Simulated scan of single mutants.
Amino acid sequence: MNRKIKYLGYGLVFWFLLFLVWEWTKSHPKVRLSPVSFPQNKEDKLDSLFAQSLAEFLIPGLAVGIVRKGKVEYLKAFGFENLDTKDSMELNSRIPVASISKLFTALALAQAGIEEGFTLETPLEELFPKEERAVDALGSVTLAQLLTHTSGFKDPGLFTRLFHREKDQPLSQVINQIPKKRGPEDSMHYADINFDLLGYGLEKKRPRPFEEILSESTLLKAGMKHSDFVLEWPETDNPIQGHEKTFLWKRIQANKIRFERSPSPSSGLVTTAEDLAVALVHLGRGKMGDFQKELDWLTLPSGKLAGFQHFRLHGQEFTGHYGGQAGYSSLFAYSYELETGFFLLSNAKDISDHRKKIAETLLKTLFPNP
Rank of each mutant, 00 (worst) to 15 (best):
P123H: 06
V67I: 07
A359F: 10
I95T: 12
F229K: 06
A106Y: 02
A333F: 08
L138S: 07
G9R: 06
D237A: 12
H189G: 02
R3I: 08
Q52Y: 13
A277T: 00
R182F: 08
E211D: 13
H243I: 04
G284R: 04
E339A: 14
L362I: 03
I252M: 13
V31T: 15
T25F: 14
G242H: 08
R94F: 02
R355W: 08
D275P: 11
L198F: 03
G315D: 08
F118R: 02
M89L: 14
L49H: 12
L305W: 05
G139E: 04
S335V: 03
S101K: 07
S48P: 12
Q325Y: 13
L33A: 09
K86F: 09
S172N: 09
L298Y: 03
G117K: 06
E360C: 01
R355E: 10
Q40T: 12
T160Q: 14
A222H: 03
F14Q: 05
E360Y: 06
S140G: 14
K69E: 14
G11I: 02
F57V: 06
S329N: 06
G323L: 02
T299I: 04
N82V: 04
S346F: 09
G315R: 06
T218S: 04
W249K: 10
D237R: 12
P301Y: 12
L214N: 02
V278N: 11
N369K: 15
V135S: 07
F159L: 14
K180C: 00
A134Q: 13
S352R: 14
F80V: 01
D136K: 13
L12K: 11
P39D: 11
S34F: 11
L107R: 07
D350V: 01
T148H: 06
G201K: 00
A55Q: 15
F342M: 02
S93T: 15
K180D: 11
I59R: 07
Q292G: 10
Q52K: 15
A98I: 03
I252V: 12
G113M: 04
A106C: 04
E81D: 05
K130C: 01
K69D: 15
M188W: 12
F343T: 03
D290P: 07
P39H: 14
P179T: 05
H321E: 02
A110W: 00
D155V: 10
S172L: 08
W15D: 01
K293H: 01
G327R: 00
K304N: 12
G289N: 06
E125H: 01
G303N: 10
R161H: 13
F229H: 03
D196I: 01
R258W: 12
S335R: 09
S88L: 15
T142D: 09
D44P: 10
R182M: 10
S264E: 07
L75Q: 15
D290I: 09
P265I: 03
G183Q: 08
K357E: 11
L146G: 01
P170S: 11
G199R: 05
K221R: 15
P263W: 06
G157H: 11
D155Y: 13
T160D: 14
K250G: 11
A110V: 06
Q173C: 03
A63E: 04
S187L: 12
L331A: 07
R133N: 06
F19N: 09
V67Y: 03
E23T: 07
Q316G: 07
E43K: 15
T365H: 12
F128A: 00
L220S: 14
P156A: 09
G320C: 01
